[in-house]
Design a protein around this nucleic acid. Structure first.
Lengths: 236, 236
DNA sequence: ACCTGAACACCGTTCAAGT
DNA sequence: ACCTGAACACCGTTCAAGT
């Protein structure tokens, strides 16, 4: 028996670790956008041959999946403290933390939303959300629907935000280099879609974080005050 | 002057049309998932050399963008009739139409959400939504925020739905071939995340369309009844 | 077990040439 | 204007071989 090294720490003469590969992938995505995280590029950055990556991950999709899970894990870790605020504040903090940590890596987010979010850290986030809604007195079936609704909203908002800002990979053609947070419409578009043009200027005057939180609370309103008739809310 | 052919119809001896290329791309995506729509594959399907595609579109991203716009255009066209129901019914019909037409093409949707939805048909949909909210008596700034919220929800739901179902490209590993609409958790997962497990069984008992509409109406509740204090709703 | 060089079967895109 | 063959610079992944 070749001594299975039960401590497992000095397992073998590997040059790399899974984490180093994920670091390299994230750096490449941050610098060059969603197409920059090629297996060959990752291998070059950590200084090995392209196929050495396959010692640590079975394929490229697994690398992306693990990277997404790691980003979600940071969120979970960042909100570990039991949160002494009222429940709405806790949901808000969680949503803000999630948004902040993901929008910092638009290239990674673009790849993440291509596949399902079903890893353990994603589940842990859902679990925490269900816990918060239960604490708020929302009955289980409504909390189940509500948590799903919140998840769709939060990830949808992040996805929209990430795709609206230019990725570092795309050269960002200079015709639409507008400084406004939500870019205005061209004259022709404004003429054809007057309400959209007006809405763009109305919303553009607010910070996107404010818009994000407004939507979140509208949604919490809808979840907590809505049918089936339900008024179990604890006092503020 | 080489006679610019003002009628423009028999413009030249082109073998293809933009529509044929989009048809081919959509067929490939439907059959093989998001990675199946290669420029070379499209060209082969319409019977030309790979680079002939670049006569019609400047690059692959433009093909994807045009395809997304076409799918959104069908939605817009499908809800052309002025909608004689009360406004909530109209929003619901629009949301259902959008979901139905997009989830029919999961591969295309996966590619669409990678880039921004800012084409004319996307704007037309937003315009219609703003019109409906204005008809409902929602003041302009709230309608602007609300429309954005609805768009995020609808596209987020579709994206989640599409990524949860397996794409035809991925071989759908036989370990998770569960028949339920929302797949249940493994035993280990259920033990670690009890609320998520319970929520999965609770939601799994409903059709996903019902869950989709539930969220939509919770959201409409939040938009129409919420601060700033507002009770301008027309009688049913 | 881990890494290597070499190869396979693909990509998107460009270029010069033909009509 | 439109299409072609040929090529360039890439991909992800596999395989046999080395340690």
């Amino acid at each position: 028996m070749p001594t299975p090294a039960k401590g497992r720490l000095p397992r073998s003469r590997r040059l790399l670790s899974e984490e180093e590969i994920l670091d390299a992938a994230l750096d490449l995505l941050d610098e060059g956008g969603p197409d920059a995280a090629s297996v060959r590029g990752i291998a070059a950055r950590v200084g090995v041959a392209p196929n050495a990556v396959y010692t640590y991950f079975p394929d490229k999709a697994s690398v992306i999946k693990a990277l997404g899970e790691r980003l979600l894990g940071e969120v979970q870790q960042g909100s570990l403290h039991p949160c002494d605020q009222p429940w709405r504040g806790c949901v808000e903090a969680l949503a803000l933390d999630l948004r902040g940590r993901l929008t910092a890596h638009p290239g990674a987010v673009t790849l993440m939303i291509g596949g399902p979010l079903d890893g353990p850290h994603a589940l842990a986030l859902q679990e925490r959300l269900l816990q918060l809604l239960a604490d708020a007195g929302v009955p289980p079936d409504q909390a189940a629907r509500g948590a799903h609704l919140l998840i769709v909203y939060v990830f949808g908002s992040i996805a929209v935000e990430v795709t609206e800002r230019g990725q570092p990979g795309q050269p960002a053609k200079d015709t639409d280099r507008l400084p406004s947070p939500r870019r205005a419409l061209s004259d022709a578009q404004a003429q054809q879609f007057p309400r959209s043009a007006a809405a763009a200027t109305l919303i553009g005057s607010h910070a996107s974080t404010e818009q994000y939180l407004w939507g979140l609370h509208r949604l919490l309103d809808g979840i907590t005050v809505s049918p089936p008739p339900f008024e179990n809310q604890p006092p503020t």
